[in-house]
Amino acid sequence: MKQDTTGHLSPEELVSSLVDGKDPGGPAGLHLQACPECRLERQRILEDLRALGRKARDCAPEPARKIVLPSREPAWSRLQPFGWALGAGFAAAAAAAVILFLAPVHQDTVPGGQGRVVTAAGGMSDAALMADVSRLTENALPDAYAEISPEASTDAFDDDEVLDFVVPISDDDGLT
């Protein structure tokens, strides 16, 4: 950074001293102490920045909602990495239970069949039904999709990891 041709501090030097929060050292600092014009210019930039902060505050609403805190959580819910897998496991188990419960009572009357009752599973054996249920709960995708999808991971996927993969952070400047 260099002083401008008038002998005053350059705008860059003024900004630098403003960001540092202290007068620059050496000749630039001595000049700043002695020159009302330079001090005024630095003050002008500072006032604009302060006005910006005030204006932003004036142009923002006040929060209207009360923050509601949860009750202290039970220890098991702190198993964050496994939360997703546990949820999926419960959902699969619940789905299997519903299918097993409904299958025998879902009745249909065969036309002309004298009210003969058949189960939804038709003549399927228990073993075949269980195999189907297992297949469904382990992999809900149809076979065609299963072939093109990556092998199911045994790792519990965190929501954030999925999000990181699908929508990476767009920050183009890593603040390094």
């Binding site: 705008p11 900004v15 960001v19 540092d20 930039i45 604009d48 204006k55 390094t176």
Partner: peptide, 24 residues
């Protein structure tokens, strides 16, 4: 690092005549 980024941002801000004019 923070100061470096802040310096660049403020340097651009001081040239932002329309915004500064609006604030004035």
């Amino acid at each position: 690092t923070v100061k470096t980024h802040l310096y660049r941002a403020v340097d651009k801000f001081r040239c932002e005549k329309e915004l500064c004019g609006f604030l004035k």
